[in-house]
Design a protein around this nucleic acid. Structure first.
Length: 440
RNA sequence: GCGGUCGUGGCGAAGCUGGUUAACGCAUCGGAUUGUGGCUCCGACACUCGCGGGUUCGAGCCCCGUCGAUCGCCCCA
């Protein structure tokens, strides 16, 4: 049985929905420029080891990757996230030799994850992300969070909460993880099945369990903060202070651990608290990674970044009733009232378009009324009528839709009339180049 | 990967305990208005009811499977 539906968890984009993407992408291009991020593009698939390194316990790389073997025995994986590939490229191209460290990059890329789809969770989703590489100072952690917040609030989102936590440096984190495993070694036997799995895969997540929340072993479990060394604590305090200066309210979420294993120190997640958001509420999230660059063969440089889900962003915008769509408008619609006008309509349309006017036309197929309706749908500001009578005299009828003003003029005067109606500041004596915003 | 709900023209949406031509609204097209739209009225086009199989004299309605969406869990963007 053939199946001509889009694969599960993927979608076609077109029309207004795609126009929303354009609006978001335009803002991304603009704001990254202002904030000093350079774009970097990396392949949609990488050698599997770029994403999957030893002892990785995360679901994203262990259960959800699209991994395949190409001709031969190379194992390749469709990128499940944006950071690892970017770091690979940063290292491979020796971009760390730049005199301008820290380096600031952004990317927009599809990400592929084999998951059960639901609202806000796709098998192919798109992430906008930034990374700042080569400097480790609390101000940068705050800067990255601030940037993400600026972007989403510029789009209009309000129902947001910033969750932040620290995992400490790798030693702190490893020591804590070890302590947790020892602590739960016995009691884990009577915990839920999920916890037993977490015990093996990611012990930090046991603390988040809803089922065994009240178990004594849970209540007196070791605390991460007791395993943070002074430096890690001080670093986190400093990040929080920088954030305080920005006026962004943050909530310390001491159980926030994130889904990728490479994080150290600061981790954060910005979630929508809007009621109609559904259960996939994280709009963007990320953190600092001290060892990823060196793990991928580069120098010991720390980095920090976030990934923001475009699809998620759209769900959040929808939930808050924010409309990104600019009203679609066009300049000219040419109606033909007689079959003989078709070729003139065709030529005139082309000439108008060459001069930057957004132009549509009808050849003589539908009723006059119906053509006019099309013009309305296209939100044409000016309608040009080509009828039998005018054609004889090399004239056309032009109508300014908003004012209902109508003139019969020589074909040669069309551009002057358009300039008059569409661009009040237009100098009548200059040429026909149209300079209004909508005609580039 | 687990559990629940759902899938009818381009869109929204009826369809009773299975029974002749599957409502209705929006949109589209035509006409009233032989060359002036956005209102109104009339008319027309368009769905083998996600797909496959089964039960039945007969299925959009029942059963099984499958694809997809959605909600919760899990996980995350």
């Amino acid at each position: 049985m053939s199946n001509y539906q889009v694969p599960r968890g993927t979608q076609d984009l077109f029309g207004d929905e795609l126009r929303k993407w354009h609006a978001i992408e335009a803002l991304i291009r603009q704001m990254t420029q202002v904030f000093g991020y350079d774009e970097i593009r990396t392949p949609e698939f990488e050698h599997t080891e770029v994403f999957k390194r030893e002892n990785d316990s995360s679901d994203v790389v262990n259960k959800e990757m699209y991994t395949f073997t190409d001709r031969g025995d190379r194992s390749l994986t469709l990128k499940p996230e944006g950071t690892a590939g970017l770091i690979r490229s940063f290292v491979e191209n020796k971009l760390y030799t730049s005199p301008d460290l820290p380096a600031k990059y952004y990317y927009v890329t599809p990400c592929f994850r084999y998951e059960r789809p639901q609202k806000g969770r796709m098998r192919i989703h798109h992430q906008f992300g930034v990374e700042i590489l080569g400097d480790k100072t609390p101000a940068i952690d705050a800067e990255v969070i601030l940037f993400g917040m600026q972007l989403v609030t510029t789009l209009g989102l309000k129902d947001l909460k910033v969750l932040i936590n620290t995992l400490g440096d790798s030693e702190s984190r490893a020591a804590y993880q070890k302590a947790l495993k020892e602590h739960f070694n016995e009691p884990i036997a009577h915990f839920c099945a999920d916890c037993q799995r977490r015990y093996e895969q990611n012990p930090l997540r046991i603390l988040d369990c809803k089922v065994d929340q009240d178990d004594p072993a849970m209540i007196n479990a070791p605390k991460l903060r007791d395993y943070l060394n002074d430096e890690s604590k001080a670093y986190f305090e400093s990040v929080l202070n920088f954030l305080k200066d920005t006026g962004i309210e943050v909530e310390i979420a001491d159980k926030l651990v994130r889904g990728l294993d490479y994080y150290t120190h600061t981790v954060f997640e910005v979630v929508s608290v809007n009621a109609s958001m559904g259960s996939q509420s994280t709009v963007f999230g990320g953190g600092r990674y001290d060892n990823l660059v060196s793990d991928l063969g580069g120098p010991a440089l720390s980095g920090i970044g976030f990934g923001m889900g475009i699809e998620r962003l759209l769900v959040a915008l929808e939930a808050e009733g924010i409309d990104l769509l600019e009203p679609q408008q066009s300049d000219v619609y040419i109606l033909t009232l007689d079959p003989s006008a078709s070729s003139l309509a065709f030529q005139l349309t082309n000439e108008l378009r060459m001069n930057g006017f957004i132009t549509h036309y009808d050849v003589y197929q539908k009723s006059f009324k119906s053509q006019f309706k099309s013009a309305d749908r296209k939100k044409a500001q000016v309608v040009i009528l080509l009828g039998e009578n005018e054609l004889k005299n090399n004239q056309v009828v032009m109508k300014h839709v908003a004012t209902q003003e109508q003139v019969t003029i020589a074909i040669d005067d069309i551009f002057h009339q358009l300039a008059h109606w569409l661009d009040p500041d237009h100098d009548e004596h200059c040429d026909h180049d149209h300079q209004g915003e909508s005609h580039v």
